[in-house]
Amino acid sequence: MNDRLKNAFEAVHAESDLKEKTSEFLSRKTQGYQRNRRPLRRLVPVMACCLLVLLFSIGTGWLYFTPVSAITIDINPSLELSINRFDRVLSVKGYNEDGRYIANAVNVTFLKYEDALRKILNDTDIQEHLRRDEPMSIVVVSPDQQQSDKMLNTVKSCTQGHHNVHCHAGNSEEASAAQAVGLSLGKYRAFLELQALDPSVTPEEIQGLTMREIRNRIAAFFETQQPVSSSPDGTSSEQGTDTPSSEASAVSSCEEEPHYGQGNGAGQGNGMGQGNGMGQGNGNGQGNGNGQGNGNGQGNGAGHGHGHGNGQHRGRNAS
């Protein structure tokens, strides 16, 4: 039986046709037995996928890491937060020594800007400045009006508890101009205000000043420009009631135009005469005694205040 089986198996051979077909198939399938083509071709879709993933991540990274808006905070430390389109803080830049210190001390990178702002407002240095009631200016800059409004509202709500904090929206031209002179936007605005009054001010001077100091300088400038105007106003209006040309006299006290005053005063002169008679107006009495010295009388009056007024009242009553 063994032999029969063996013979039967032996009788079967692979047909030459079958062998040829197999050889052809192998040659076709391996592309003429070339080693490298297949793996390379197999790599094409893999590489395409990698490329897509790479492009996608570059695109997302670019979107994420491009700052589109900014918030500047000025009190003494000047800070600027760069914010991306997903409302995340990308970086914090300090514009002066204090600002740089806080920028390093407070880690707010990649936080939502409202959280970052809260964190900065809670910083001990900033708290110290706020406690001293120093004015804080927060300026929001965004190219998109809607976004800018939204951010401004959020910032306002963040700073609600602090009464001396001023929030504004700025535009990008302003921001770049501020950057060009090396000031944060809040300070730059204050600088422009001051520069309008005093053209000799330079950004370098401003850099070292606190917001309060800048405000003080602006205020001081106003004071020197417009001297004690309130008290003589009161008196002059009373004068006005006395004379037919009351407006003119009021103006004269404010704007220092003595000629008008004189003209009107002439009418009053009579009254003044009486006033003198009263002997009240110490210095005035002398000046006015002649009745003509009204112009002077008024000029002085601005300086002296009440003494003068009383004299006039009398005059009126008499008349």
Binding site: L18, K19, T22, S23, L26, T30, R35, R38
Partner: peptide, 24 residues
């Protein structure tokens, strides 16, 4: 990957065995 010669040799040597097993 093996060469064409190796493939041809293998076909010559083992085609019958493979054919018989296929038939089984």
């Amino acid at each position: 990957m093996r060469s064409e010669q190796e493939a041809e040799r293998a076909i010559e040597l083992y085609a019958d065995t493979v054919r018989r097993l296929c038939m089984v």
